[in-house]
């Protein structure tokens, strides 16, 4: 029996090494179904992460999914005398937010963290975003921890390949992505501006939100981490179209859960119109952003900063 257990453990070690080695050697060019590696797929993370590594001591760090990097415009806050950085990325769930905070918190050293939370994102498994971030970051313990925490073969294997590829090749460090395309412009500080765009909303079938226990645990861990570091954390929910909001059967549960987590502010602005201020169900266009930023700063951020004696 002891020999059996010993051999099983020894074999597991060998098998892990063989799998990691073969993944590193063969993972490129889409040869392996469960290894994904692609730089620059539309949310400008390559720019954002590179900038995050060089930015120090900001007043406010915005973090979260695409709602974050498409809503909080650093140019607006600069006019108010605040230095901010936006560390949002596509489909970023708390599992990725936790990893990003552990990686960049010392560097960015924010006085306040504004974390965007969204009911849909709290239901995601986080696989897509974990692969995407692993592709765009160098090998690190935090990235590996995130990949295992997601608990999906794709995220682990993609992390293994990304780590080996980014260690031995200069593809990531030499990667140059255009800062603009026909519809989006990357703005220094992590924000992505949408050029034009209106929306024709149509009703959604009703759906029940099935929150991921893993994401909830991770969100609690983020709140604890920031509390330990003495950084106030404000949870905000960025508006999306009314037709989408009305389709959630158990939206109240989301609000209750977030209120239990900490300081939660759902941003509600009646002036926002589904057609005029959005370019899809989830994201504001620049006109919508301009309206929301004023409301958010005057009614939520400034009072909160005063309450926390940040300014």
């Amino acid at each position: 029996m002891k020999r059996f257990v010993y051999n099983v453990l020894l074999f597991s070690l060998l098998a892990t090494c063989v799998v990691a080695l073969l993944t590193a050697l063969l993972g490129g060019n889409g040869r392996l179904r469960n290894v994904k590696y692609h730089l620059g797929v539309g949310d400008y993370s390559a720019w954002r992460l590179r900038e995050a590594g060089k930015t120090h001591d900001v007043d406010v760090l915005f973090i979260g999914s695409s709602h974050a990097y498409r809503t909080f415009d650093p140019r607006f806050y600069a006019e108010k005398g605040l230095s901010v950085f936006n560390l949002g990325s596509s489909n970023q769930t708390p599992l990725q937010t936790e990893m990003l905070l552990r990686t960049y918190l010392d560097n960015l050293n924010p006085r306040l963290v504004v974390m965007e939370v969204h009911p849909d994102v709290m239901c995601l498994d986080g696989v897509e975003s974990s692969i995407f971030l692993a592709n765009h970051m160098g090998p690190s313990f935090e990235v590996a921890r995130m990949a295992f925490a997601v608990g999906n073969v794709k995220s682990v294997l993609s992390m293994v390949y990304s780590a080996s590829h980014n260690s031995f090749s200069s593809e990531l460090s030499h990667f140059e992505e255009s800062t603009a395309d026909t519809a989006n412009i990357y703005i220094s500080g992590g924000y992505v501006e949408r050029v034009g765009g209106t929306y024709s909303p149509c009703p959604h079938p009703t759906s029940t939100l099935d929150f991921s226990a893993r994401q909830m645990r991770s969100l609690r861990a983020i709140v604890r981490l920031l509390k330990r570091r003495g950084v106030p954390c404000l949870l905000v929910e960025v508006p999306d179209t009314k037709v989408l909001r009305e389709s959630y059967e158990n939206y109240d549960q989301f609000v209750t859960q977030m209120e239990k987590m900490g300081d939660f502010r759902p941003l509600r602005l009646d002036a926002l119109d589904d057609s005029l201020h959005f370019y899809n169900d989830n994201h504001l266009n620049q006109a919508g952003v301009d309206l929301l930023e004023v409301y958010f700063y005057d009614s939520v951020l400034y009072p909160y900063m005063q309450e926390k004696q940040i300014r």
């Binding site: 060998l14 098998a15 063989v18 799998v19 073969l22 392996l32 469960n34 073969v153 794709k154 294997l157």
Partner: peptide
Amino acid sequence: RWLLYSFIIFIIVAFMQT
């Protein structure tokens, strides 16, 4: 033998449906 098993495990994890 162990290398062969490890190779099969690699095929499984690299190509399995997730």
